[in-house]
Every structure is written in structure tokens, then in C-alpha cells.
């Protein structure tokens, strides 16, 4: 059972939150090629380790949050707002 510290609401149980998506994807330009869009929508890194991802506090303040979670241990090392960046760049995995 994870407990997630929402910057607005404080620490709550993960059942209040909904996993969103990989937070390292970058929205392509509207006129980008089909390939670029295809990669954006479908291709994901299956990271074993630190992963930057979006969660929504669905049953709380409904804010979208950026979360750095270790996929091996489920340890959450950082939580911020979508425009924030984690203090240390996490290791690049590919």
C-alpha cells in the first residue's frame, strides 16, 4: 500500500490516486509526422528503476502530479507539479 504525499492535500493512500502516464513523453507539434505521433502515443520505456510519471489525485484535489517512483521498490523519492523537475536528474534508462 503506497502512501503518496500530494503537495496540496498531504499524505494520502494511493487508492485516492490514479496512475496517469509516463511523464517523460513530450507532446509533439500538431503538424509532426505520423511516426513522431505514433511514438508519442504508443512507445514506452519499460524502466527498471527510477521512473518519472504522472498521477492524478482523482479522489482528492484532482491535481495532476509528477511523481518519481522506483519501479523495483515502489519508493517514491520526489513529488511535484507537472511543470516542476525533480532535484536530481534520474538515471537514463533505455
Amino acid at each position: 500500500m503506497l502512501r503518496i504525499k500530494c503537495p496540496y492535500c498531504g499524505t494520502r493512500e494511493h487508492t485516492e490516486f490514479t496512475y496517469g502516464e509516463d511523464a517523460k513523453r513530450i507532446l509533439p507539434d500538431t503538424d509532426a509526422s505520423l511516426d513522431v505521433w505514433n511514438t508519442y502515443v504508443f512507445a514506452r520505456h519499460n524502466v527498471a528503476g527510477e521512473h518519472l510519471e504522472y498521477w492524478q489525485h482523482t479522489l482528492g484535489c484532482r491535481a495532476w502530479l509528477k511523481v518519481q517512483r522506483n519501479t523495483l521498490t515502489h519508493t517514491i523519492s520526489w513529488i511535484g507539479l507537472p511543470q516542476d523537475t525533480p532535484p536530481q536528474p534520474e538515471e537514463e534508462c533505455s
Binding site: 492524478q56 482523482t58 484532482r62 495532476w64
Partner: peptide, 17 residues
Amino acid sequence: AGPVLSHLERCLEIDWP
């Protein structure tokens, strides 16, 4: 109703702040 609201919120907060 729920998924649409989440989608709108996501677009506003993440894609087009």
C-alpha cells in the same frame, strides 16, 4: 463522465498549461 473530466484536466495541466 469521470474519464472525460480527467482528460480535460490532464490536457490543461500537462499539455497546455
